[in-house]
């Protein structure tokens, strides 16, 4: 039986449309394996987050958010995302536009550079900014003379987050814009439309779902970034701790309820992002 199975399988595979009991057995087997795997690796840890967070009851769970440091961390994370996502959206649009619509020297270098943050370790991304703006960095002395702080302050966190998230919008838009081509824009121009009119009435509607998808991905990473931010933030409670950093601190202090409560909030935000993404995809595909 065991020996007969593979050959029977191979025979079936070459004849589509034939549903034998063996065929459906294999199908269920595959589904079962992947679901089990998913449950073990993904769902169980997720569930653990919520179970641990609610271990001492809802009261304790809600109480952990009353802690001013925790509230500050939530605020910081949201502020960072709110600043970083729009800036990277603009940058991504500009870069994708330049790459898809024009031929220029150094185009391939630009494409490679956009991918750079995806390739290098987040810790190194953070280090770069410390080396640039830290006390012993290139601009460190100048910054101190002018009483400006970037590292171990909000600007550093934003810069590091921006650095690690800037590929997302551009990456999403470049292939889309290349595939959609220039014809509609050219048609608009021959019909008398100027640059802004063409952009807002033709290009933007054409790419809006891709753009939104890129923004959602960018936002997810901006809120969840740990490595790069950890290097530049300095872990000052209530000031420069983002949610992921705060979770680590709470955990290290054996405040499991607090740590997992914040973790559950971050998870919920991520889930929300994914829901938005799914909705965007559905609407987008239907409209496209």
């Amino acid at each position: 039986m065991g020996a007969a199975l593979p050959s029977a399988l191979a025979g079936d595979a070459t004849r589509p449309g034939q549903h034998t009991w063996l065929h459906s057995l294999v199908r269920w087997l595959f589904i079962a394996v992947s679901l089990t795997f998913l449950a073990a690796v993904l769902l169980a840890p997720l569930a653990t987050v919520f179970v641990m967070a609610l271990e001492r009851g809802l009261q304790a769970y809600l109480h952990s958010f009353a802690d001013p440091d925790t509230a500050a961390a939530v605020r910081l994370t949201l502020t960072t995302a709110l600043v970083v996502v729009p800036i990277n959206t603009l940058f991504g649009l500009a870069a994708a536009w330049a790459i898809a619509k024009f031929e220029f020297r150094g185009k391939s270098i630009l494409i490679t550079l956009i991918d750079l943050p995806l390739a290098i370790s987040p810790v190194i991304s953070g280090m770069i900014f410390v080396l640039l703006f830290g006390l012993h960095g290139w601009f460190g002395v100048w910054l101190r003379e002018h009483d400006l702080s970037i590292i171990f302050a909000l600007p550093g966190i934003m810069l590091a987050t921006m650095f690690v998230t800037f590929p997302y919008v551009a990456r999403e838009l470049i292939p889309l814009m290349q595939q959609l081509g220039n014809d509609e824009e050219e048609a608009a121009i021959t019909l008398g439309a100027g640059g802004w009119m063409t952009f807002f009435h033709v290009t933007l509607p054409k790419i809006r779902w891709g753009l939104l998808y890129g923004m959602v991905l960018c936002n997810a990473r901006a809120m969840g970034e740990f490595g790069a931010v950890s290097v530049v933030s300095g872990h000052i409670r209530g000031l420069t701790n983002t949610m992921p950093l705060h979770i680590e601190i709470l955990y290290n202090e054996y405040n499991f309820v607090g740590a997992f409560a914040v973790a559950s909030l971050l998870t919920l935000l991520a889930a929300l992002t994914l829901v938005v993404k799914t909705l965007v995809e559905r609407t987008g595909y239907r409209r496209r």
């Binding site: 014809d183 509609e184 050219e186 048609a187 608009a188 021959t190 019909l191 496209r288």
Partner: peptide, 27 residues
Amino acid sequence: ARKRGVGLVFQNYALFRHMTVAENIEF
């Protein structure tokens, strides 16, 4: 190009895909 006042028809139509026929023509 926008000031030349010519009408151009492309091989692959190049209609504004998110606009209705009416909006396309009235552009």
